[in-house]
């Protein structure tokens, strides 16, 4: 499938933006600058990027506890995200949500989610809304391998299938649900096989290959917009960091982590773009510099932003 040059470059920029943001968040967290806890998306950039490159601004996504990558790929601003992680008033949620609840409804981002599998039915509802309003909008529901074991997965996918809702379920199978291997908690090798139980198509794709993800989702989104209902897409990938920052990851075999790091999606895509003449090494370096500056400014913005006034706690409960 042909993908426009501009789109490929934009996808690369997004992958780098996610990587730089996440690695910086990891550092800021370790330095004690970010309260609470954070879940880092490094290693899975090709999924969010390949998926969201298919979406219009008015399409919706629901995200997960490991949501920063999804939000950035859907167009979320890194300065407002960083300010939220810092608990500042200028953050996406005015400091009320933090890492797990960042949302931007203008961009169709219906929130990261602190509950594993919590977004699945919300995605179905947004898809129902799009169908009833006749807007031709599509919805992507990101979920992890662990969430595919939730009851909400069964209820949500089944109902969306019954109603032909315009939603694509993207399972990011990074092999671990928190600290438990998916092979210990599921008997199927491909989680996408579960689609058969709902009478919908399934696709299993290399989640570290951004163009493969893009193509798989392209087909699924186009089915959704044509009123043909949901698709279940499994992207096989790997979580480089722990479940949370500070997780000692005693459960991961060293060789496994090393093998996956060799499949790093960012340099793999860069290599492919240089080899196919989409851009040069110098272009790639310019992108890295631009993103590095952006993330530096995001941190500066967060640090210089005011904290919320304590009594703002009482606002935003009711409309």
């Amino acid at each position: 499938m042909h993908i426009e040059k501009e789109k490929l470059i934009e996808m690369y920029r997004t992958m780098v933006r996610i990587r730089e943001f996440e690695e910086r968040v990891s550092k800021e967290f370790a330095a004690g600058n970010i309260p609470g806890f954070v879940h880092i998306y490094t290693g899975e950039e090709a999924v969010a990027t390949g998926v969201c490159a298919n979406l219009r601004k008015d399409d919706y996504i629901t995200s997960t506890h490991r949501g920063h990558g999804h939000l950035i790929a859907k167009g979320g601003r890194t300065d407002l995200m960083m300010a939220e992680l810092y608990g500042r008033r200028t953050g996406y949620c005015r400091g009320k949500g933090g890492s797990m609840h960042i949302a931007d409804t203008e961009l169709g981002i219906l929130g990261a989610n602190g509950i594993v599998g919590g977004g699945i039915n919300i995605a179905g509802g947004a898809a129902l809304s799009a169908q009833m309003r006749g807007t031709n909008q599509a919805v992507v529901c990101f979920l992890g391998d662990g969430a595919s074991n939730r009851g909400t997965f069964h209820e949500g996918v089944n109902m969306a299938a019954c109603w032909n809702l315009p939603v694509v379920y993207v399972i990011e199978n990074n092999l671990y649900a928190e600290k438990t291997r998916i092979t210990d908690t599921a008997r199927v090798t491909n989680l996408a096989d579960r689609a058969t139980a709902y009478g919908i198509p399934d696709v299993t794709v290399d989640g570290n290959d951004v163009t493969a993800v893009y193509e798989a989702i392209h087909e699924a989104i186009s089915r959704a917009r044509q009123g043909k209902g949901p698709t279940l897409v499994e992207c096989k990938t790997y979580r480089w960091h722990g479940h949370f920052e500070g997780d000692r990851q005693t459960y991961k075999p060293k060789e496994e982590a090393e093998a996956w790091k060799k499949k790093d999606p960012v340099p793999a895509f860069r290599k492919k773009l240089i080899e196919t003449g989409v851009f040069t090494q110098a272009d790639a370096e310019r992108i890295h510099q631009m993103i590095a500056d952006e993330i530096e400014n995001a941190v500066k913005f967060a640090r210089e932003s005011p904290l919320p006034a304590p009594e703002e706690t009482l606002e935003d409960v009711y409309a």
């Binding site: 629901t62 219906l110 039915n121 179905g124 129902l128 809304s129 089944n158 109902m159």
Partner: peptide
């Protein structure tokens, strides 16, 4: 799915 769906529809 009923309540979660209602939340998603209300948000959109």
């Amino acid at each position: 799915a009923i309540l979660g769906g209602a939340i998603g529809a209300a948000a959109t």
